[in-house]
Design a binder for these strands. Sequence first.
DNA 1: GTGAAAGCGCTAACAG
DNA 2: CTGTTAGCGCTTTCAC
Lengths: 348, 348
Amino acid sequence: MHDLTLEDIARQAGVSRSTVSRVVNNQPNVSPEVRKNVLRTIRTTGYHPNAAARSLASQRSWMLGLVLPRNTSSFFTDPYFPHLTQGIAYACNNHNYTLSLFLVGNEEDEKKISPRISRRGLLDGILVQSGQAGDKMLDQLTRSSVPLVVLGRPFEVDGVSYIDVDNINAAKKATQHLISLGYQRIGMITGAKTSTVSQDRHEGFMKAFAGAGKVPDLSLIAEGDFSENSGYLAMQRLLPLRPDAVFAQSDIMAVGAIKALEETGLKVPGDVALVGFDDIPVTSLTNIKLTTVRQPITRFGIKAVELLIDLIEKGAEPARRLILDTELIVRESCGASKLLGNRGDLRS
Amino acid sequence: MHDLTLEDIARQAGVSRSTVSRVVNNQPNVSPEVRKNVLRTIRTTGYHPNAAARSLASQRSWMLGLVLPRNTSSFFTDPYFPHLTQGIAYACNNHNYTLSLFLVGNEEDEKKISPRISRRGLLDGILVQSGQAGDKMLDQLTRSSVPLVVLGRPFEVDGVSYIDVDNINAAKKATQHLISLGYQRIGMITGAKTSTVSQDRHEGFMKAFAGAGKVPDLSLIAEGDFSENSGYLAMQRLLPLRPDAVFAQSDIMAVGAIKALEETGLKVPGDVALVGFDDIPVTSLTNIKLTTVRQPITRFGIKAVELLIDLIEKGAEPARRLILDTELIVRESCGASKLLGNRGDLRS
DNA sequence: GTGAAAGCGCTAACAG
DNA sequence: CTGTTAGCGCTTTCAC
């Protein structure tokens, strides 16, 4: 059975190709009866328009690309990316776009993927995870003519549209919280210092101190890489310096830190208080109720897609940016409940 | 600057469109010098062929679809899916295919996604996660003319190609291991009973007993749904029945089970021995070294893609199946090291 | 080894 | 409201 075409449907319904096209695309200028008639033969024949032909003729593929660069090794270990991907997939679906996924594992992948992404006619728009400084892939994509939205602030923001959460304020709130609880030796476990996320959260940390008229002990800042193990190791390095509270730049690192503390027999928050970032369901990873900065990961993905579609439809110039708010979720690991006599979740 | 076409390159290189096409597609019948020449102008102009036009003319999109149906809610909580996706993405990349992702969240998604998948000209092949019994989407895809590989044994295997791990044998090995260690009250935490994975592992469990000339206590079989929490709850239900060993059908459920045991003050493996399934890095989730059945998740994804490509290139008939082997990884949670005086990893 | 020409199946003016 | 027509940019016979 040879595949059906518009032509076939037109013939069967006794109308022209254009009319069928109009019906398929839900366009006006078709009489109700003709439309109903055409719709019926489409249904009975099981006709589906050919995607390639449509893309070629309309210069629109209805396809969005999600590019996750190599440094995103935590794709498998950090629930962040699955959640993000889900939000993106959901939104694509909602807006009738198809999502294609480009996981760039190494340089070799990059070489094979790059030209594929650049092919005209394949993608109507691109979502790319903000990477480390000097990310070639991002540079290259930025130069292409396909509408682009960067997930997370990129290093070079000139002329590129991006979406991000307000990392500076978020980290500031988290740190202020610890300061206000009276902790005196507040440390931080950062992500890779070459990432903008980590830099922004670092800045928020500093701002909180500045705002309180205090100066942080910089030796209490340990670098991680957003992986759990790095949080574990960072906390081990921090321990001899006797911090009484630590702000971990991701929940997963906070979990690692907790492991390190438990191994040493230290209590959270009794001996060391902890605040995380993400609000990922870590309850499954540790029994400690983690105080954390909640970022709307799924919503982030949805908004990213909507921004991208807007750029596609209304033009990518001028570049736009969208910053989402976060929320400090006070639970037990920061010691607030004990110190202040509160119980359960508290939103500030 | 208007996008470049083959025509443009042909003109600039002083040859015909066909010749450029041959060069682009690495076909023979082009003299070395002409080829070199064309290649150069392609490079200097930064020409990239149009994907839609190519698909339309060649009836090949070089695009594969990965469909994860709604019951795959564990996409975010179980590392299994990120790993699988990574293997698939890697293999697609390697074979010059682009991967598109269809996460089917609910019925509404299904309605929007189905026609998109069925569109001719979009996908050269489809990978679909095996679902629950009566999965409409799978049924529908099976009926379509696009080559299809099901991930995991489907309910109806007639005429459909699929890839799976040898769940029966794997579960049998795991259970035999517990039996051989002398446990007398061996329980099991299953996945949803409507899934083939769970059914097969159930069968393996039974076979191990049969092979040992024993009869399992069926009341020690508790149903979960592959989520951690379900493992936790299942173990709570099991505890009053005093099992001395439990085979959890996934590592994540094993972790839940461990939580339940720890809460009750019971030791693993001292009070209850445990064997999991997957060999996911759960070390981050619990301090217990889990004895488990290792399944090659990433390789599973790679093999699935390769099988699908084979079907695309050599025809989908007759249906093929590929069963991957598993390996029992003996660590500490089964109590083997204590009972047998062994240490560390032991592969059976 | 190379080029001309005929589509691939659809959209989108433009007439009518 | 409907049909005619001209492409979209490439692949692929088929001559030469």
